[in-house]
Nucleic acid binder design. Structure first.
Lengths: 110, 110
DNA sequence: TAAAATTGTTCGCGATTCGCGTACCTGTAT
DNA sequence: ATACAGGTACGCGAATCGCGAACAATTTTA
């Protein structure tokens, strides 16, 4: 499972085995083993790979099939920041209104 | 890292080592090793533990530390929707610009 | 209260698996 | 033709795994 996901993600990003091995400070053959299924990455490696690929450990391990979790802003259970500064409730409401208005405009443009 | 998280979660649920070992079909001492840090669970075990505890592999592995994950919109690894409709790359850029402009205005107001 | 069962901890053992280096097979560029 | 990078496969020593066993501590049962 993880081998398939790693292979897909790497090809999508057009990265070489060597590049990833360098990022994780492991041998090329070691990472190659992950993709071929010949070896299993350590938990630490899984963690780093999730960050490197910009995905989640859950996706790599196959807990979920979604490469990128999708969150609905009108039912938010997360905190969001821009430039490290947390968005207020009001700002989120304004954001939603902003996008809705923009979409409405574009609908009429057509 | 994972040992601490497992221990916390299990205690919160008031489960015994044996109970979890039974769920995963492993020996009690094996799971005990995970909590003490004497052993590391296999990737398959991590996956099952995430499901069993109703949490994420990312939390168990320490990819995310916070109980309520914080998402930085300028380094987005998620997809976002408003009214079920996915935001485009452009829209996110506009959102960020919108909030930055608004914050700039408020700074001068003071 | 005494006995029995459950829980949590630790450790040695054999078996498995790891990470690395190396060798090898492609293509591609020089 | 030669050099080089990407990808694959494998042997080796070292590290780690999962298990059972043994034991203390705690709880339950009789």
């Amino acid at each position: 499972m993880i081998s398939k996901r790693l292979s897909e993600l790497r090809k999508k990003k057009q990265w070489s085995l060597q590049y990833i091995a360098d990022q994780l400070n492991i041998a090329k053959s070691t990472y190659a083993g992950y993709e071929s299924g010949y070896r299993q990455p350590s938990l630490e490696a899984v963690k780093e790979l999730a960050v490197l690929f910009g995905t989640t450990a859950d996706y790599l391990l196959g807990v979920t099939d979604k490469e990128h979790p999708t969150i609905e802003l009108t039912h938010l259970t997360f905190h969001m920041t821009i430039d490290g500064e947390q968005l207020t409730e009001d700002e989120i409401i304004q954001l939603i209104a902003f996008i809705r208005a923009k979409r409405e405009l574009e609908k009429h443009k057509k």
